[in-house]
């Protein structure tokens, strides 16, 4: 019996170890390959050049166009997702009846499980033509349309986590606010939302982190033209979309162009890693407020 317990414990620990080792392995490979890349390309050029043309004859290795593309689509996405998601969370928590809430919440989560390739096509074939009726100068591939669609995709991240944050605010605060003569709206936005602000910020950061890493939608609908711009109407390329483009197989294995994947990959990883840590830090620092 003792031996059996010991074996079970070891197996469980091994399972936990697999995930840790995988993460470490990914980081290691990214770091090593990126290190090799930076033997050929100076970090200064990588960080400051505004041209990203590793696949052209005249090669430039400036990450800024990919970063601006990623930042632009992410910014558009969170501009859509935060207000909509927060409004939904407030509605569910402060206004909706229990019955409505029980139906609406799972339906919202469906948004997050639609395959992203479907969203990508949706952006390209429906949203872009639709937007063209308002913005005649909009290119067929652009940052705006996938940005908006990505925003819709991440609404459940914001609404679900924000709703959790709002519902963990003690009812006594709501009572205090009503007792002072506040309307429902004042109670929601002057008491409940500020009291849940740490959780809402965490939800926004996780949603941003998800948007930064999103690949399929931008690969399909944003074009594949690295361009250092914040104009949402022209084709751009994000870090993730670039990685897809290069991974398709036209690039010879071991070439510098091939290694750009790792340089781009580690840049992406650093950003999402920092964001996740910030959200974790906010969570642990501010969460015990109401205990």
């Amino acid at each position: 019996m003792r031996v059996k317990e010991k074996i079970i414990e070891k197996v469980l620990a091994a399972c936990a170890l697999v995930t840790v080792l995988t993460t470490l392995g990914i980081i290691l490979i990214l770091a090593v390959e990126a290190f090799v890349f930076f033997q050929d390309v100076s970090i200064l050029e990588f960080l400051t050049s505004t041209q990203w043309t590793p696949l052209f004859t005249e090669k430039n290795y400036g990450i800024l166009p990919l970063l601006s593309g990623t930042a632009l689509t992410t910014l558009i996405a969170i501009t859509v997702a935060l207000p909509v998601g927060l409004t939904i969370a407030v509605y569910l928590n402060e206004y909706a009846h229990e019955r409505v809430r029980k139906v609406l919440k799972p339906m919202l989560e469906i948004l997050a499980v639609v395959p992203t390739v479907v969203y990508g096509f949706f952006a390209l074939m429906i949203v872009t033509p639709f937007l063209k009726t308002f913005i005649p100068g909009l290119a067929g591939f652009n940052a705006l349309s996938p940005g908006i669609v990505m925003g819709i995709m991440i609404i459940p991240f914001v609404s679900s986590l924000s709703e959790d944050a709002l519902s963990s605010v003690p009812n006594s605060l709501r009572q205090a606010s009503f007792g002072m003569g506040s309307t429902k709206f004042q109670t929601a936005f002057r008491v409940m939302v500020p009291a849940a602000s740490s959780g809402i910020i965490v939800s926004a950061i996780l949603a941003i982190s998800r948007a930064i890493g999103e690949t399929m939608i931008v690969a399909i609908a944003a074009g594949q033209q690295p361009r250092f711009t914040f104009d949402p109407t022209v084709p751009i390329e994000t870090i993730t979309a670039y990685i897809v483009q290069v991974s398709m197989g036209d690039v010879p294995y071991g070439s510098i162009a091939y290694k750009t994947i790792f340089a781009a990959g580690i840049t992406l990883f650093i950003f999402t890693f920092i964001l996740n840590n910030i959200s974790y830090w906010i969570k642990t620092k501010y969460q015990e407020k109401y205990e």
Binding site: P170, S172, L173, Q175, A176, S177, F178, G179, M180, G181, S182, T183, V191, P194, A195, K289, Y290
Partner: peptide
């Protein structure tokens, strides 16, 4: 109701200040 509650204030069982 909002006007009424400005005239009739309330203090609750557990202190419930806002996190402000």
């Amino acid at each position: 109701v909002e006007e009424l509650r400005k005239t009739v204030g309330m203090v609750f069982q557990k202190p419930n200040p806002f996190p402000k």
